[in-house]
Amino acid sequence: MAGMGGSPSGGRTGHREAGMSDAPSLMRLELVSQPELLAPVRAMLTSLSERLGFDEVETGHLALAVDEALANVIRHGYDGATDGRIWISARVVDEPTRRLQIEIEDQGRQIDPAMIRPRDLDDVRPGGLGVHLMREVTDSCEFERRTPAGMRLVLEKSIPTSRSPGRRDNKAGTPENGTP
């Protein structure tokens, strides 16, 4: 899974995409668009987030956000095809505030970012909740078209200056082995 071979970002030695930082990546992954890989990616993100100082709640939120992002790529970007490529990179950005930035790129179907909106939650029906969840549990969630193909999503979440173990509410998204 490791490596960025074939990623049009090419390790970010070329031009800088809007909103992206110069900070070096802490982690880069290349994976194929198989739902079975969501669980190991969540586990990896959970471990990284914990090491960076996110509390249990925020760690769970990050795992949920990335899970939803990857699921969207698999379902909509690649229409369920299991041989599409997805790249994930994570970096810490210090300015203007310290935050974890996670970039998810694919080579799937492009869509106008303006069309990617959370749906009306009063309309109770299956599906369409992923974007809403991603926006709710992160500080920033920005989609853009990649060149020449696919989409790029940049998720950001502020890294806490100190742990806040007292927060026990809103615990979405921690993998099954993460239960304390």
Binding site: L38, R42, L64, D67, E68, A71, V124, R125, P126, G127, L129, G130, L133, G173, T174, P175, E176, G178, T179
Partner: peptide, 17 residues
Amino acid sequence: VPYMDSSGVATLVEALQ
């Protein structure tokens, strides 16, 4: 069930309907 994403939620919404 320690974890559920929106696909699981959607499954339960459909089951409710």
